[in-house]
Amino acid sequence: MTELASSKMYVTFWGTRGSIPTPGTSTEKYGGNTPCICITHNETVIILDAGTGIRNLGLEMVESDQKPKQLHLFLSHTHWDHIQGLPFFLPAYSEGTHIAIYGSSKKGNFLAGILQRQMDMNYFPVEMTAFKADITINEISDRAIQIGDVKVDWQEQIRHTGGSVRYKLTVGDKKVVYATDIELDSIFTGKPGKNDKVLAKEYETFIKDADLLIADGQYTGEEYPSKANWGHSSIPVVSEIAYKQNIKQLAVFHHDPLHSDNMLDQLSAAYGAKYHSMTPPMEIFWAREGLTLAI
């Protein structure tokens, strides 16, 4: 076995909640921070989204004996819940750290401008110029980006207000896909339009055979009809698609702010039993803060 094939990606969830932070006793198990995931492979550090969870990631980084100096932050999009932790990310204020930020160029506004305006003094007391780290903001254009041994593929998602981006991280034969903030029900259910078939095929091809799919599953099947066109997926739809595409582990993500720990436990029990009993089985679980997987 080569060194590359034997080394693992470590995937840590720092924020799993959708839409708005939800602190409190009813959400302490799965967490109340908005999206942030850190994936490391040897010396490579890749962060997916800068929701409020990135604050705790930053605290751990600055307390670490081996502070990472080269960070790569990929944004799925710039809605608040995916960027509002960035002003509280301590490594951004640390001289000698380099942070490369990547995001879609299809915003009509430059990504740098959007991030700078979040730190306009009308919204936040410190402007982005206070960042002491060397920060580059990159609007992605190439189909794939190579960072160390990690290849990052991406694709635009249009079924979310304002659009979003999904990412696939590949090392050797291991694949981790991050595909949040997309309304799969509008593509895969009902009478499909011609464009829906294209979008469905693109999604299926992108996620196929992933070792870990981190996917938007904000609503239950019962909740979805009243949330149609809100830009998020239902759990039964995303889990069925994942199973058909031979996903080994499905991490349901972007939990609804109204969903308590008890409710997510009940969903874990029901869906876990269903997919564990199938042939072949698929592992499905609800992402929670403080969980690290080795892929």
């Binding site: 470590y10 840590t12 302490e28 198990k29 874990s268 876990g272 564990h276 592992e283 679980f285 803060e289 403080g290 969980l291 690290t292 997987l293 080795a294």
Partner: peptide, 13 residues
């Protein structure tokens, strides 16, 4: 494994 998920590291509840 924590709650049937194979983990590398996990904050316990």
């Amino acid at each position: 494994f924590v709650n049937n998920v194979r983990v590398s590291r996990c904050i316990l509840h």
